[in-house]
Amino acid sequence: MAKLTKEEVKHVAHLARLAITEEEAEKFADQLGKITDFAEQLNELDTTNVEPTSHVFPIANVLREDVAGEGLPREKMMLNVKEQEAGQVKVPSILE
């Protein structure tokens, strides 16, 4: 039983900011369904009271002195920007 419908895949693609065609949605629903089916096996394990691990070492709050360092120069920062004008990054209109 596939876990994901085509509509759900389209919704997830929207959340992930990926344009998707009907054919792709169908293909990914099938493939992702197989993967989530496979992941169902995790439910065989009782994890009541098991702490989740997000990180293997108990490092917390690595701090440094709050001293201003040198930043990167603007021309470097802008080096890979495809569209720019007067040292600013250009994007299509935001308001309709």
Binding site: L4, V12, A13, L15, A16, R17, L18, F28, Q31, I35
Partner: peptide, 21 residues
């Protein structure tokens, strides 16, 4: 949406969607 759809390959898209899900 279009930059990402045109720029990423299928395996990357699959994993982004699996992760988002």
């Amino acid at each position: 949406k279009n930059s990402r759809a045109e720029g990423f390959g299928d395996e990357v898209k699959r994993r982004i969607m699996l992760g988002t899900f």
